[in-house]
Structures are given as structure tokens and as C-alpha cells.
Computed example of a mutant assay.
Amino acid sequence: MGAVNNIWNAKEVAEAPDNSAIQIRFSSQSVDPSLPLPQITPLVTKLCKDLFKEWSDLDDSRFSVETVSGGITNLLLKATVKEDDGNEVSVTVRLYGPNTDYVINRERELQAIKYLSAAGFGASLLAVFGNGMVQSFINARTLVPLDMRDPKLAADIAKELRRFHQVEIPGSKEPQLWTDIFKFYEKASALEFDDNEKQKIYETISFSEVHNELVEVKELTSHFNAPVVFCHNDLLSGNIMVNDEEEKLYFIDFEYGSYNYRGFDIGNHFNEYAGYECDYSLYPTKEEQYHFFRHYLGPEKPQAVSDKDLEALYIEANTYMLASHLYWALWGLIQAKFSPIEFDYLSYFFLRYNEYKKQKEKCLLLARSFLSRSNAG
């Protein structure tokens, strides 16, 4: 097969824990993700030729580029090349959205990808360039929010998330949630919009209130004994793929990945049942959550998981779910200022923050009651 497949594989990573044996290819070229596909195609073709010398002499007509998906921070492309032996090789080219470095630690992301790939997660990292990366192509479909409600898929996601949480990534094991969220707060509370209408809407936000909410949730969650694991932190439907024929599930896009609280990753995933439209009537019921927890906690014997363990994870996930709303609400404000992507990020802030306020009392009451009983016991 094509030379791309031989750059490195998971076995090589596993045998080289410090990644010294892995040669990730690099180019200083950048590709503007805002361009239409006909203009992007020759740029991606040139990029591929620059990165993969085996392709450098091939005619441009051998290359084709198509859009896989356009999220609200990235553009995902599939580049396919017909090699001299007639075989077609495809790679995934991910273009970072402009200004995403305000909210994403790219160094942390690249470090994690190497080890997650070695553990069988996502696509292999093949190359890095000016504003993106090239990875192996995954032959699978991307989930939509309603897929996550399917009992079979929910069980598979739970099992895969447990496995994901067992991966060891070198470096600090300090949970990043509150570090990241207060960084977001500092940036979000000091913005100024050129657009007068946006500025007026922005000025209706009480950042002293937001700060008090952050402090309250942080203080309460500090009483949980939530395991700190390497988390995906953005497990929405668009970051889960499935090959239906092989019944194989893939987690992709680890740009927000970090060591974090297990409950945050799960609570955040449940919030994503609502989709980009933020229809929180789709948030999983207690019964659906327990189904997920059984397969997360007991992948081999889900029915053997105790009621005590189910309740503890239910409280943990639904308290950290509140932190997820605050995290992405503040993220939305930063994106509203810096992202050129056509998306109403300001409205997104209010959708997330209002849902936080709607769920807060019920969730905090449950958490405090649970903690009180646990301490008494």
C-alpha cells in the first residue's frame, strides 16, 4: 500500500514511550480554512506533496479533496491520491479555525495524540503543518446527537470511554478543569466588541455573578472523590465515529483533552445529547444514565454494578455537568470575539448559562444531600 501508511504505527509508539523513534513530518505551510473548496484543493495538494516526498512528483490530477465536516472550530478534509501502483490512499487534513489558540493548548494536544493513537484511539498523527495536522483516514460515519441515545451505541461509548480514561499520558496529572475555566473567565470578562449590538448584549452579563457561580461549584465538587483521569473533555456526537459493518467505534479530535475529573467528562458528554441547538429536553434520563454507568463501571458484567456505585457516579456526573455549562458558556464568549466562523457564539453563551441556572438548584441539592449522607455514614 501507500507510503503514508508506513510513516509510523501504534506498535512503534508503544515500543518508543518517549516517541523518539517517531518521525512526525512537518511543513510551515498554512491553508486558509475560510476559502471555498475549489481554492482549498490546490493548496492542500501542494501541502501533501510538501509533506510526503513520495507524492512530490505526482501530477496534481492524481489528488482529490473533499469536505468531511466543518465544525464550529475546525474544517476537516479528506485528501485522496492515486499512486503509481493504482492504489488510492486517503488522509485526513484538519485545518484549525483562526484564533483557536486562545482556547486550545496545541502542544498538549499533540503530546496526547501520540499516546492515544498508541492505545488505539482516533487516527494516527502523520504530520503537522502551519495551521493544522494530517492524520490517517478513518472509514466510518460521524454520529449525530440522536445516535447517542441508542442503547447499544451508548453502551459501546461507555465502554470505550472507560478504556480512554485508562490511558497514561506523560506529564503533569493535575486536573485542568478549574485552571482552564478561570483562564477562560479572565479572557471572557475583559472583552470589547467592535460591533455595538454585540457590545450591548455583552454588557448585560454580570461577571461578578458568573465568578460566584464558578467558586460555588468548584467548592462543592472539591468534596467529591472524583477520579482524575485523562479526559476527552469534548465528547460530542461529532467527535464519535462508527463503522457500522465492523461495529467499531472511534473517538476523534482530542484538542481539549487533558487530565481532568472523570465526572466532568461524563457530565459533559450527557450535555452533548442536546446537540448544537442546545435542546436540553434530550438530556439523558436517569434510567439512560444508569444504563451508561453500568457499562462504564462494569464493562464485562454491567448488571453486577451496585446501586451504591450507580448513585455515586450519577451525583458526580450531574454535578460536574454544571461545570461543563460554565466552561462552554465562557468559551462561547471568547469565540464570539475572536472566531471568524459564522456562528452565534453570544447566544450560545446565554443558552449554556441559562441551562446552568435552570439545573443548578436541583443538582446542588442532590449533591449536598449525597455528601451529607456519605459523611454521616
Results as ranks from 00 to 15, higher is better:
Q135R: 12
S136T: 15
I138F: 03
N139S: 15
A140H: 05
R141F: 00
R141C: 05
L143Q: 02
V144Y: 13
L146A: 09
D147P: 06
R149F: 07
R149Q: 03
R149C: 00
P151S: 00
L153R: 02
A154T: 02
A154V: 04
D156C: 10
I157M: 06
A158F: 08
K159M: 09
K159F: 02
E160C: 08
E160F: 03
E160W: 01
L161Q: 04
R162P: 08
R163Y: 00
F164I: 08
F164T: 06
Q166H: 10
V167Y: 01
E168K: 09
E168G: 07
E168R: 04
I169W: 01
I169Q: 00
I169T: 03
P170N: 08
G171V: 03
S172P: 03
L177I: 09
W178Y: 15
D180A: 01
I181D: 06
F182T: 15
F182K: 13
K183I: 14
K183L: 14
F184R: 07
F184E: 06
F184C: 04
E186Q: 10
E186V: 12
E186F: 07
A188D: 09
A188L: 09
S189I: 08
A190R: 15
E192F: 14
F193K: 11
F193R: 10
F193M: 12
D194T: 11
D195F: 13
N196Q: 14
N196M: 15
E197M: 11
K198C: 00
K198S: 10
